[in-house]
């Protein structure tokens, strides 16, 4: 079932993610996905995350479908123009992919091919619109399609952005353009998230709060310094620092955050970033 269908039924939607490998050795990634079977509703497959060249999201989504796991096809505007993006959306549908997460994408210079030409022909808003057009049986130029696809479209937002208003304006555009679910950037401050949820109540779209597993106090400090719109409060950094069993502590914090925010939103998106094996533990500890 798609994320939108699940949310409509009132199910608290759980998603996690896998990162395709740099290369063709897919064993570990598939094992990680296997650990999530029956525990999550869908698994996001990242698209050249951080602008680092890897195996693509599209074939990995298909690999998941073949194993009877529900994928979320992440698509960024960084590497493909409108011709390739529309074609990949058609391709995704023919491969059985329904959930599509439309993103702008990180800038090229942050990855491992900084010499590459950045595309950004479309942006996240017009990508959503392109997908909607395809569903109506037309491409972006208004040409008729032989058979129309059908998607469950998603988008992202950064609830901790400062100022928040530009993000809210864009989120509204995304919903108008056709986004049916939203996955958020990592959130560590439930009070701020609650305020964010109030400010977007009128949009009436399911929100899956983003949880990034804290690996260490150092990682928290790094994110505070370098990741836009993410703030780990000092109390959590201290907790990590003083923890005897760090791994256990990070699972405990993630579970606590989920428990604190569960009543505020319609789902959770767990980004374990290299610690996918821990996802089932988090879900169990959060009593989902």
């Amino acid at each position: 079932m798609t994320i939108a269908e699940l949310a409509k039924q009132g199910k608290f939607v759980i998603t996690a993610e896998v990162g395709p490998p740099k290369g063709v050795d897919i064993q570990e990634m598939l094992e990680n996905a296997e650990l999530m079977r029956g525990k999550v509703d869908a698994i996001n497959v990242t698209d050249q995350q951080s602008s680092v060249m890897r195996l693509g999201s599209l074939p990995v989504c298909r690999l998941l479908i073949e194993r009877d796991l529900e994928p979320v096809f992440q698509v960024t505007c960084r590497d493909r123009n409108r011709i390739a993006l529309q074609s990949d959306l058609l391709g995704a549908y023919t491969l059985g992919i329904k959930n599509v997460l439309c993103l702008t994408g990180d800038f090229i210079a942050l990855g491992d091919h900084p010499q590459a030409k950045a595309v950004f022909d479309l942006d996240s808003v017009s990508l959503l619109r392109a997908a909607r057009e395809l569903e109506q049986g037309k491409d972006l130029s208004g040409n008729e399609l032989a058979g129309a696809p059908n998607f469950c479209l998603g988008a992202v937002v950064t609830p901790g952005a400062d100022p928040l208003e530009p993000q809210l304006i864009k989120l509204e555009k995304k919903v108008k353009a056709g986004a049916q679910f939203i996955q958020t950037q990592a959130v560590y401050e439930p009070e701020k998230f609650e305020a964010f949820m109030k400010s977007i109540a009128h949009l009436n779209v399911p929100i899956l709060v983003g949880i990034v597993l804290l690996r260490s106090a150092g990682m928290a400090r790094f994110m505070n310094k370098n990741v836009a719109g993410v703030h780990v409060p000092d109390s959590l950094i201290q907790e990590m620092e003083q923890a005897e069993k760090r791994m256990q502590k990070s699972v405990e914090i993630a579970a606590r955050l989920i428990k604190d925010m569960k009543s505020m939103c319609q789902g959770v998106h767990i980004m374990a970033i290299g610690m996918e094996q821990r996802v089932p533990e988090i879900i169990e500890a959060a009593e989902l």
């Binding site: 960084r78 994408g105 800038f107 942006d123 996240s124 808003v125 017009s126 530009p166 864009k170």
Partner: peptide, 9 residues
């Protein structure tokens, strides 16, 4: 990124 519909994240 020459975005025309608002900021990225």
């Amino acid at each position: 990124k020459s975005l025309i519909n608002g900021p990225c994240g």
